[in-house]
Computed example of a mutant assay.
Amino acid sequence: MKSKKEYRVYFNRWFSVAYHYMNSIRNNEDGLPFKLYGTHPDPRHMALQAADYAATEPVLQGVEYVQWLADFCKEHEIDVFIPRLRMLDIARNIELFDAIGTKVTVCRDVDLLEKISIKDKFYEEVRESGIMEVPAYEVVTDAAGFKQAYERLLAEGHRVCFKPTDSEGGLGFRIVNDQRNALSDLFGYVTNELTFEEAYSILSQADSFPSMMVMELLEGPEYSIDCIADGQGNLHAAIPRRKADGRLRVLEHNEELLAIAQRVAEAYRIPYNFNIQMRYSNGVPKLLEINPRMSGGLHATCLTGINFPYLGVKAALGQPIGELKLEYNMMTSHIELAMRMATFEAGQEREASLAGDRSH
């Protein structure tokens, strides 16, 4: 990339780690100038602290929200839009961004995004394809179904957990543990565990509830595989990141997981940044979920020498990713950093003075 044009990159409502991703793009290895834009309903949100231009988002749904995003991109002449919230709605209405020349780092395969967002449908497709293993599971919508699924998995020798079919991250995830000591729990840390009787009693309060997956609990090492692909979904790099004790993460060269990442890329052609979450069970890696976006821990994976956020932007601009040199097999962690907040009132906009309002 030889041009010295200042590219404009926009993040809509993101997690707080977007602070790191904006700075990774700003401090790119090619020395390209960028102006970073961010919006969020909370004007004090951490994701906005790295933005050169920040504004509050309205709380909207569906195509109305997508239209607001497209209008924002048009008004500010955004070159690359990196969405997090409402990615499926954005993909369904991608023509709004094509019409104004804004590149969007979203998978345009709407059918695939729909399947990924509903975990039981995606698990079934993955099971049939054979590209990787999935946990044993059943989908239930009432307490009787929950009891039946729990008993079947227990009889097969599994510990049991459950989760809504359409949740993100750890939302709604619970572990069934009949060995819990309620008194010890009361004086200890908040837990995501409960007994079968507690879960069954709660679920029995309604005739039915939104579909939920009752699954085998995977208890081996947990991995996030951070991947970068070009705009056509050709995989350029994948880094397995293993959860270790506490805040420790190990960036591993794991041939088994690298092969899975390659098969996923070939099967689904997910462009730009995506993430595969897996966990081992009795030596077998099994799928938890696929996120068609940058993961929450990607800033740790960038320590391998790959600037994942910047490469996603580069690919969106139609530029070659190029040859990548990376370093595996390192342990990482993180600490908090005190900082003075750049704040503004809800409904207002804030534009940082690049000459002096930010130091990194």
Rank of each mutant, 00 (worst) to 15 (best):
I225Y: 02
S295C: 05
F196N: 08
K119G: 02
A144M: 06
R26D: 04
M341F: 12
P33V: 02
C302P: 00
E222S: 11
F11S: 06
R92E: 15
F11N: 09
G101E: 11
I290S: 07
R241Y: 00
A259H: 12
I175N: 04
N192W: 03
A316W: 10
V190K: 15
F308Y: 13
R269N: 08
N254C: 09
F72T: 12
L32F: 07
N291I: 04
E198D: 11
A355K: 14
I306D: 01
K4R: 12
Y310V: 03
R13H: 11
A315G: 09
V17P: 00
L298I: 08
D71V: 01
T304R: 04
G101V: 09
K325V: 09
R44H: 14
H76T: 05
G297N: 08
G318M: 11
I270P: 08
A259P: 04
I228N: 00
V126N: 01
G101P: 09
V139P: 03
M331K: 14
F173C: 03
M212A: 06
H334Q: 10
I175F: 07
C107V: 02
L88D: 06
F274W: 15
E125R: 12
I270F: 03
A144T: 13
V214A: 05
E327D: 13
I25M: 02
T343M: 09
S353V: 12
R44D: 14
Y7S: 09
R92K: 15
A259L: 09
T191P: 10
G31K: 07
M341D: 13
R350H: 06
E77G: 06
N192Y: 12
F196T: 03
H40P: 08
L36R: 03
Y7D: 06
I90R: 04
A144W: 01
P41R: 09
R159E: 14
S204A: 13
G170S: 15
I100Q: 08
I202Y: 06
A91L: 07
V104P: 08
K314R: 15
D226F: 01
R241E: 00
E252M: 01
Y150C: 11
V63D: 08
I335Q: 08
F187G: 01
K2E: 12
E323Y: 07
Y21G: 02
A144C: 02
E114W: 03
Y223G: 00
E323T: 15
V160G: 09
P43R: 08
N234A: 12
A259E: 14
